[in-house]
């Protein structure tokens, strides 16, 4: 019975959340409260863990909640249920998109959409800047401009950004280097 609840819940979340992992939160919270799968504290911990571990946040949350309620089978069912709606929808869209992408109406729509999506990605990047390169809370407390900037992080950012434009190594290389530097210099 609990497996059926997990399947239906995550299928619904996959079907009705548009805009990435954190857009699933309201639906997920509602289900978690209704079925009493997690306490409030566990829910907050679950989000923190999903954001800091690798992989898409939405998948991490589904796996975590599924595992907590129904073990390995629960984790697998939750994850497959959340991806099933988009799997079907995307295959249908991909099928037609590959047929109609040369149509003037579709081409002109994408010419307007591309700059907007680039801006959405830039905005997502800006959100990470706010938690990684600057300390807004410390600045609000102390009102000292020097407190606003995380100097260590900004130096690492500049070095990485300049290097990756000169030497085009695999992104994984820079992620590992940054992890090591973060560990050594206590970011």
């Amino acid at each position: 019975m609990i497996y059926l609840e997990v399947c239906i819940t995550f299928f619904t979340i996959g079907l009705f959340s548009i805009g990435g992992g954190l857009a699933t939160l309201p639906l997920l919270q509602e289900a978690v409260e209704r079925y009493q799968w997690l306490t409030n504290q566990e829910f907050v911990d679950m989000i923190a863990i999903s954001q800091s571990t690798p992989g898409p946040i939405g998948i991490n949350m589904a796996t975590y909640v599924g595992f907590n309620t129904g073990g390995i089978l629960g984790a697998l069912l939750a994850t497959f249920s959340i991806i099933l709606p988009s799997f079907i929808i995307i295959i249908i869209i991909a099928h037609f998109f590959m047929k109609f992408n040369e149509q003037p109406l579709v081409r002109s729509a994408f010419m307007g959409l591309r700059p907007a999506v680039t801006a959405l990605i830039a905005a997502a990047c800006f959100e990470v800047v706010k938690v990684s390169l600057v300390h807004i809370e410390q600045y609000v407390e102390t009102q000292e401009l020097l407190q606003l900037f995380d100097i260590k992080a900004i130096v690492l950012f500049l070095v990485l950004f300049i290097t990756m434009n000169k030497i085009r190594k695999h992104p994984i290389v820079y992620i590992i280097i940054a992890a090591v530097i973060g560990g050594i210099f206590q970011f």
Binding site: T118, C125, V129, S132, L156, L160, G182, Q186, F187
Partner: peptide
Amino acid sequence: HMLAGIRVAVVALVLNAVIRMWKSSVK
């Protein structure tokens, strides 16, 4: 600390990706 370091790399990598996308999207 390592995760904080990784977040800095993610900012640099995504900014780099945005610049590349800008070139193929903003005409």
